[in-house]
């Protein structure tokens, strides 16, 4: 089982361009997607993934916004500072970049990684839970290895990502997480155990 866990502070540069074959895609990336791309590249270290590799990814609750909510908020207020539907349509929506949708849709990390690595196999995007992610992996197709990933944006803007390449047998031997464990916590714990 290979595991990798990485974190970047809000101001830290994520060197995603160095690891991307489809460099034009970078304009669509949130910092979480960029960090995921780099972390996965480090995990694989040049190894090629078979196209049918099953791939499951878990998104955590978003605590930090990187989609210009404050710009939108400013544009939508009327003269007394309240929400104005007219301003929302005339100024607010116009202030939103169409690329924002790609940064906030939950399945985008999985989709961009699938695109970059040409993954066409079994897949799922789960919300936050480590147990949900593992259930998905343990009941998926038997073909080893499976690719698992997770990401989280914290309130202070730092981003944390983790990936593992493992067989179902290896995953089944690990302690099954409690229902309230966030997926990224599981990757962090796996990586710490590996480094000990």
């Amino acid at each position: 089982m290979k595991v990798r866990h990485e974190a970047y502070s809000l101001t830290e540069e994520i060197p995603v361009l160095a690891y991307l074959k489809k460099r034009k895609l970078v304009k669509y990336f949130s910092r979480e997607i960029s960090a995921a791309m780099v972390c996965l590249a480090h995990l694989l270290a040049g190894e090629t993934l078979p196209g049918k590799t099953p791939f499951y990814f878990a998104r955590s609750h978003k605590e930090y916004e990187d989609f210009d909510l404050q710009t939108l908020a400013k544009a939508c207020r009327d003269e007394v500072g309240k929400f104005s539907q007219q301003q929302f349509i005339n100024r607010g929506i116009a202030s939103m970049s169409p690329l924002i949708q790609f940064k906030i849709l939950y399945n985008m990390p999985l989709s961009f990684i699938a695109l970059e690595y040409q993954l066409t196999g079994d897949n799922a995007v789960l919300y936050s839970s480590a147990a949900g992610l593992l259930l998905q992996a343990l009941h998926g197709p038997a073909d080893p290895p499976l690719l698992l990933g997770a990401g989280r944006m914290y309130g202070d803007g730092h981003v944390e990502v983790g990936f593992a390449l493992a067989s179902k047998v290896e995953l089944a031997q690990l302690p099954f997480p409690a229902a309230d464990v966030d997926a990224i916590d599981m990757f962090r714990a796996w990586a710490q155990r590996k480094n000990q």
């Binding site: 939950y106 799922a124 789960l126 919300y127």
Partner: peptide
């Protein structure tokens, strides 16, 4: 016995049924 929430856009609920 366990729960999960799939958020795979337009296939989220069919993936949940598949799981």
């Amino acid at each position: 016995g366990g729960s999960s929430v799939n958020v795979s856009a337009c296939v989220a609920s069919s993936q949940a049924m598949g799981l």
